[in-house]
Simulated scan of single mutants.
Amino acid sequence: MEATADVISDHGIANTSVTRIIERAGLSRGMVHLHFQSKEDLLVGVARHMSEQYYAKLDGFLSQAGPKPQDKLEAIVTADLSEEILTRKSVNIWYAFRGEARSDNAFMAYSDTRDDALRNLIFETYLEIAAQSENPEMLARDATHGTIALLEGMWVDFFLHSDQFNRATAKRIVFRFVAALFPQAFDLQDGGPEKPN
């Protein structure tokens, strides 16, 4: 899986061949075919593997978060922009699969911008934060959509300008948006999010 991910990152999906994969992995062609019926099966397996890695790392950040929903949201944003998750390899692979998802639905489940697991996690967090608002569900939906759009924009910026990308600045920008929606729940101190007492 990791060898295939490396090849996709380096060459893109169109130029990912079983020959390149077995050279990178140091395995025989027969070993690859033993576990995967086709190249597409292997690619879908890698997409699933990358998605599982993302959520495992995200869970690590969430396990360290404080008890407030604001703490959980900060953990989600911090994780998504972290060196553990947002890397040159991960962003290359993500965009490779996204390009293919337009013509191959098998990849869509792992590269969709409307990924249910992440969207629901963010939405439920915002719903807790917005509980005292006039229309908490609508506010939580709008905040979720805006946050995901901002995070995706940050991934695009990293993809195009990783040498100039600043993770702290990216996080601050996301929380400027969040603090504008929920001033009672977030404040910006020293360039980062603070939770009012």
Rank of each mutant, 00 (worst) to 15 (best):
M1R: 12
M1A: 11
E2T: 06
D6A: 13
S9C: 05
S9R: 01
S9N: 01
S9I: 05
H11Y: 04
H11T: 07
N15H: 12
N15W: 00
T16L: 00
T16K: 06
I21E: 03
A25T: 04
A25F: 08
S28W: 03
S28N: 02
S28M: 02
S28T: 15
R29L: 11
G30R: 12
G30Y: 11
M31Q: 11
V32T: 04
V32I: 15
H35F: 05
F36V: 04
Q37A: 15
Q37K: 09
K39W: 08
D41S: 13
D41A: 11
V44D: 05
V44F: 06
V46P: 05
V46N: 03
A47M: 00
H49W: 13
S51Q: 11
Q53L: 07
Y54L: 07
Y55K: 01
L58M: 14
D59E: 15
G60M: 09
F61C: 00
F61L: 10
A65Q: 05
G66C: 07
P67F: 02
K68P: 03
P69E: 12
D71L: 09
K72F: 01
E74C: 11
A75I: 01
T78C: 00
D80A: 13
L81S: 08
I85F: 04
L86R: 09
L86I: 06
L86K: 11
T87A: 01
R88E: 13
R88I: 11
K89S: 04
K89W: 08
S90K: 15
W94K: 01
W94H: 07
Y95M: 10
A96M: 08
G99P: 07
E100F: 02
N105R: 14
N105W: 09
A106T: 14
A106P: 06
A106F: 00
F107V: 12
M108R: 14
M108I: 08
M108T: 10
A109P: 07
S111V: 13
D112N: 14
R114F: 13
D115L: 13
D116K: 15
A117G: 03
A117I: 04
R119C: 13
N120P: 05
L121P: 02
L121Y: 02
L127Y: 13
E128M: 05
E128Y: 03
A130R: 07
A131M: 03
Q132E: 10
S133Q: 06
N135Y: 12
E137N: 07
E137Y: 11
E137T: 01
L139Y: 01
L139Q: 12
R141A: 10
D142I: 15
D142K: 02
T144N: 05
G146T: 05
T147H: 05
T147I: 01
I148R: 14
I148T: 04
A149I: 08
L151C: 08
L151N: 00
W155D: 02
D157K: 11
F158M: 12
F158P: 06
H161S: 14
D163Y: 02
D163H: 12
Q164W: 10
F165I: 14
N166Q: 13
R167M: 10
A168K: 09
A168T: 13
R172H: 15
R172T: 14
F175W: 12
L181E: 06
L181W: 02
P183G: 03
Q184A: 15
D187W: 06
D187E: 15
L188C: 08
D190C: 08
D190S: 11
G192R: 09
G192S: 09
P193G: 07
E194M: 00
K195F: 09
P196T: 04
